[in-house]
């Protein structure tokens, strides 16, 4: 494994910053897509207005998958190249992904109670989604627990890469096993009125997620740069 890139030490210039306006814009777009889809989508034949929970639950689940895919890519990249920045991107995506994973679970429970009649069941889909959440909660706990930067980066890259393998298992669980949760909907099983609402809400949440991951990463880099500066100062002091 190559030595970690300490280029931040040699480059005391302030790390770049994403404009906070990008976040404001993303969040306003999300509010707009939600308002649009709540007000325009018709009651569904079986579950009536409850179908509207789809516009938050399903995008949250998709973005969870996407965030953990980012963790996978950057964890593998870290293990390969040993660049500190890749570790920080993976950590940022893991934190945002775990947050969205938790949101997906809670939204599923809120939807399940009126639609299925139960808050929770231990079927393959719900259980594997909870396991995914626990893996990445463990990932974040690991990062809080290990003090040595290199050790933390290496261990969490391993956990992140292996944990992300659970993503396709979660996705396929409803196809592989018999579950209470229904299989994924597609444009063929959704009325166009619902497809449009789902797509725009997914894109809006995608923008929010990208902003969150970028911002988290920039903060992590700033923290790291400050830490390195403090270390350098301590070493340089008589």
């Amino acid at each position: 494994m190559p030595a970690p890139d300490r280029s931040l030490d040699a480059r005391p210039a302030r790390p770049p910053r994403t404009s906070p306006w990008m976040g404001v814009a993303a969040i306003l777009v999300l509010a707009a897509t939600q308002a649009y889809s709540i007000s325009t989508s018709p009651a569904e034949g079986d579950m009536g207005h409850l179908q509207k929970i789809m516009y938050v639950h399903v995008p949250a689940a998709w973005m969870t998958f996407l965030a953990f895919f980012v963790v996978l890519v950057f964890s593998v990249k870290y293990l390969w190249k040993g660049r500190e920045d890749d570790d920080l991107v993976a950590a940022s995506a893991a934190e945002v992904g775990a947050t969205l994973n938790g949101l997906t679970l809670v939204l599923g429970m809120i939807w399940g109670r009126p639609a299925w009649g139960v808050w929770w069941v231990w079927d393959a889909r719900l259980t594997s989604t909870l396991v995914l959440f626990l893996i990445f909660a463990g990932y974040l706990a690991l990062r809080a627990f290990v003090d040595d930067e290199q050790q933390r980066a290496r261990w969490s890259a391993a956990v992140g890469a292996i944990g992300a393998i659970n993503v396709p298992i979660v996705y396929m669980s409803v196809k592989w096993w018999r579950t209470l949760h229904q299989p994924p909907s597609s444009p063929a099983t959704l009325d166009p009125a619902y497809t449009m609402g789902l797509r725009i809400n997914a894109f809006a949440l995608l923008f929010v997620m990208i902003f969150f991951i970028r911002k988290r990463y920039e903060i992590a880099r700033l923290e790291r740069a400050a830490e390195h500066a403090a270390e350098a100062a301590a070493l340089g002091a008589p």
Binding site: Q34, I38, H49, K52, I53, L103, L107, I110, W111, R113
Partner: peptide, 8 residues
């Protein structure tokens, strides 16, 4: 339930 979902 719908309000709860969007609220959360």
């Amino acid at each position: 339930f719908i309000y709860a979902a969007y609220g959360v």
